[in-house]
Simulated assay, not measured.
Amino acid sequence: MSTTSQDASDLPGEASGTSGAKDLAGQLGELARSLQAEQDFEATLATMVHAALDLVPGAGHASISVARARRTIECHAPSSPLPATVDRLQEEHREGPCLDAAYAEKVVRVPDFGDERRWPSFAPAALGAGARSMLCFQLYTSGEELGALNIYGTGPEVFTAESEEVGLLAATHAAVAFADAQRIQHLYEALATRDLIGQAKGVLMERYKITAQQAFLLLTTASSRTNLKLRDVAEQLTTTGTLPTTNR
């Protein structure tokens, strides 16, 4: 009696599912390595966006939004003009999926802007701008500043449960990289500010033959009297040669 054997690669279900999971794990691993290799803040965000476009089924456009106190929204690394337009509309109407994802929910799914009722002012405007569907993932919350990864569908009803699951995994990797990139950016900004203030002190020391402490006192006095940040006072002095006009 003969027996018929079947190759494991021909078996449906578990084998193909395992292969797909391995492919996704490999892609996410590659994303993590790419994010770790980036040193520039905007380059890190662009890597996140491109990865989301590659990984999430149905994705057509993507971006990262940074919202502050529900008043302003900054669009970073948009893959096309659409995300920047949608962020501007959310800021204008003070409502929308990115804001909800950033402030209230981990994931916000918009199957079809044509049937959307959660944002009566924003949704029709977004539809008119060309947005048909969206997935928004919360990246981080830090005080009044919050971030979201936004993925725009190629049409209505294109996102599935798999799209949401894969997007959430990608957003989890992106959130860690985003936090690291922000810390590095803040460090660079702090160093740049320190150098700028040092240059401004040097200008005053040379001009008035005073000590470093006296020069710093002049800068802080100008800052308090003009209600300008110390960095802005130092920048004006180093670029124009004059201190801001004091308001007594």
Rank of each mutant, 00 (worst) to 15 (best):
V56G: 05
K229W: 00
S5W: 15
P12R: 08
L139P: 10
P78L: 09
K229A: 04
S142L: 13
E116T: 08
S133E: 07
H173Q: 12
L24H: 06
L218W: 05
G155L: 08
A125R: 12
G20K: 09
D195I: 15
A192L: 11
Q199N: 10
R117G: 09
Y103F: 14
A175V: 02
F122L: 10
N150V: 07
P156N: 03
R117N: 11
T72S: 06
T246E: 12
G153Q: 01
H173S: 07
E157I: 06
Q39M: 10
E30C: 13
V203K: 13
L139C: 10
T242W: 01
L187S: 01
L127T: 05
G17P: 04
A69G: 05
S79T: 13
Y140R: 15
P12T: 11
T141Y: 00
D112S: 14
G60D: 03
T18M: 14
E42R: 11
S19Q: 15
A126R: 04
E38D: 05
R109F: 06
T85C: 03
G143P: 09
E206P: 01
S223N: 04
A43F: 05
I64Q: 00
S63E: 06
A181M: 01
W119M: 00
Q199C: 08
G13K: 04
A46N: 01
S65T: 04
L146K: 13
S16N: 12
A102M: 08
